[in-house]
Design a protein around this nucleic acid. Structure first.
Length: 260
DNA sequence: ATGTCGATACTTTATCGA
């Protein structure tokens, strides 16, 4: 089973690219982030026409996540526990039944957190704490569980062109990495790193300052796997080619294959 | 040194977020 995740930076602006990519790469599940629209204006039909079931946690203008699956969703939850007052659409979790049992997948859009001296940074860290608590609960089930999406975290110096220029950024500062390490320390596996050891493999290049032609990117989109999912991990890859397309998202898809 | 893109609104340019 191939599970991809892609921050599309507006599903309505990106629909042609998303449809082309789905036809070319045919993931079984696609987690989408920054759809930037509500369910009423999400282009559901175009994706259903490609054979996908569609689950949406939308928001006007900002944020918003969705999931596409060739298999039907058994259960869908759009709430990350821990803050009833949080109105930002950044989480969607669904369960799919497979021949090998239940598989639960979350599509996440973690907060960016910049600027760090604003209220956005504590919100980012609190959101990561909530994700940690949720992952801890899910791990008790001892099932296949994948948290895929835009973590807005650069895990390591090898995941950025110039680490020093990012050191104080909300995506890379030590306090952010501490929170990310707490997730890994639960026993979750960074699927891409488990498969590929090459440095400087990126999933995001800023639109500004010639970041793409200079390959000044960062790796911030990840799949974290429960031990049961990690046992089934076969391969991983990054669909870099979509960044060169017309009307490209600033992120590209990243995918894994599980032997399920 | 500079460089972008998408959504929104009392819109056709400014503002916000990334």
């Amino acid at each position: 089973m191939k599970i991809a995740t892609w921050n599309v930076n507006s599903i309505r602006a990106r629909l042609d690219n998303v449809v082309t990519w789905l036809k070319e790469t045919s993931p079984d599940v696609a987690c989408l982030q920054e759809i930037k629209t509500v369910e009423d204006t999400f282009p559901r039909q175009a994706l259903e026409d490609l054979g996908y079931n569609v689950a949406i946690h939308g928001q006007k203008s900002y944020n918003g996540v969705a999931m596409l699956s060739k298999k039907p969703f058994e259960d869908v939850c759009a709430i990350l526990p821990g803050d009833d007052s949080d109105e930002q659409a950044r989480f969607l979790q669904a369960t799919i039944s497979t021949d090998d049992g239940a598989l639960t997948i979350a599509s996440i859009y973690a907060p960016n957190g910049n600027p760090v001296e604003s209220e956005k940074y504590p919100y980012k860290l609190d959101w990561m704490k909530r994700l940690h608590a949720h992952a801890q609960e899910m791990l008790k089930l001892e099932e296949c569980f994948v948290i895929a999406g835009d973590y807005n975290v650069i895990p390591h110096d090898d995941d950025v062109h110039n680490p020093e220029s990012w050191r104080e950024d909300a995506l890379f500062r030590p306090e952010t990495l501490e929170h990310y390490h707490r997730l890994l320390n639960l026993g979750l596996t960074d699927a891409y790193r488990a498969c590929k050891q090459a440095a400087h493999q990126y999933t995001f290049w800023d639109y500004q300052a010639g970041a793409w032609p200079k390959d000044h990117g960062i790796r911030i989109d990840h799949h974290l796997l429960s031990p049961q999912a990690a046992d089934r991990l076969k391969s991983a890859g990054i669909d870099r080619f979509t960044r060169g397309w017309q009307k490209a998202s600033d992120h590209v898809p990243i995918w894994i294959e599980l032997d399920i």
